[in-house]
């Protein structure tokens, strides 16, 4: 069975979003280092810093010591806060040191895919949680009872939309028979990307039920097919599947109608379904039928029907009136 090779090639395809997350992480490490050193030196040599800031013109003209005491805007920091920040520095450094490992997940055979992904995002999320705790600490809003847990796990549900925009893609190795992707829908937000590397045989269209207008969905045989997926500025999910499964691409930018967006490269026969505990053959067939349905344009409307739709000015007016009345009635919220 092919495994590590596809994972490393997938990481290469996703290098852009991964490195932008990692550089944000590295900057955060440096920021925290800077804050710590400012806090530590606040006690010792703020005079030297202030003197330097004022430049040479101040020499002999400004009493820098006095100037420094006046501008002690950074209030004194208590030991607990410094200790907390040191912990955060270690946490962020540790995440940064994991390099690409931070985005890799291996799902134990038999484990629940959704839970494994949730846990991995929760672990990555600690970087966001830590950043929040830094902000809260600096603005004196931190409270142990509310915020301490952010450093242990910071589940996806708590992520802000900005965080969801910069979250790194996740590369998940999973046994084909455990590939139950429906539960992952809740993580497809912001710019979150998930790539499932299926090992061994798997259902023919495991991602079919995740196709929705704004989500990039791919089933492919090779990582090289993921370039457009990686570049998409929205959420996406991909599965690298064996020969027997369907191959398709749902690209939200490809058009307004579902059949413009969904391109099916290979649709296996209904006998491609596999024997799986808890996933019946008819359920698997339903996924294939759904793919076919979405990808197919409806037949062109009969000429008579077309005439009726644009039934002269009177018809248009009626429609407009109806729309207006509906709006007035404010039925949208119902």
């Amino acid at each position: 069975m092919q495994s590590d090779d596809r994972v490393s090639r997938t990481l290469k395809e996703l290098a852009g979003p991964i490195s932008s997350f990692r550089s944000a992480l590295a900057s955060a490490v440096e920021d925290v280092r800077g804050i710590l050193s400012t806090w530590r030196s606040a006690q010792s040599d703020s005079g030297e810093q202030r003197r330097a800031e004022l430049g040479c013109f101040a020499a002999g003209r400004i009493d820098v010591e006095r100037f420094a005491t006046l501008l002690a805007v950074e209030e004194a920091v208590d030991a607990a806060t410094v200790a907390r920040l040191e912990g955060i520095f270690d946490l962020l450094s540790d995440l940064a040191d994991q390099k690409d490992g931070v985005v890799r997940v291996k799902v134990e055979p038999g484990a629940v895919l959704r839970d494994a992904v949730a846990a991995a995002l929760g672990r990555i999320g600690r970087a966001f949680g830590a950043a929040r705790v830094v902000g809260l600490s600096r603005s004196h809003r931190y409270e142990d009872s509310l915020h301490q847990r952010f450093l242990r796990e910071y589940p996806y549900a708590l992520w802000s939309s900005s965080e969801r925009q910069i979250a790194p893609p996740l590369v998940v190795e999973v046994a084909g028979q455990d590939l139950r992707a429906e539960g992952l829908a809740e993580f497809l937000d912001g710019r979150q990307k998930i790539v499932l590397v299926a090992q061994g045989k798997c259902p023919p269209a495991p991602l079919a039920r995740l196709v929705s207008p704004g989500v990039f969905v791919v089933q492919a045989a090779e990582p090289v097919a993921l370039a457009a997926f990686a570049a998409y500025q929205g959420p996406g999910i991909a599965a690298l599947v064996p020969e027997s499964a369907a191959l398709f691409t749902h690209d939200p930018q490809a058009g307004a109608r579902s059949w413009d967006r969904l391109k099916v490269a290979r649709l296996p026969q209904e006998d491609a379904v596999i024997r799986l505990e808890g996933l019946s053959a008819s359920w698997q067939r339903e996924c294939l039928r759904q793919l076919q349905e979405i990808a197919t344009a409806p037949p062109a409307p009969a000429p008579a029907a077309a005439g009726a739709a644009s039934n002269g000015p009177a018809g248009a007016q009626v429609e407009r009136l109806a729309a207006w009345l509906l709006k007035r009635a404010d039925l949208q919220g119902l």
Binding site: A24, S27, A28, F128, A130, A131, R132, G135, E163
Partner: peptide, 9 residues
Amino acid sequence: YSLLDGDVC
């Protein structure tokens, strides 16, 4: 940008 930027966290 850094994770500490105001608009991220």
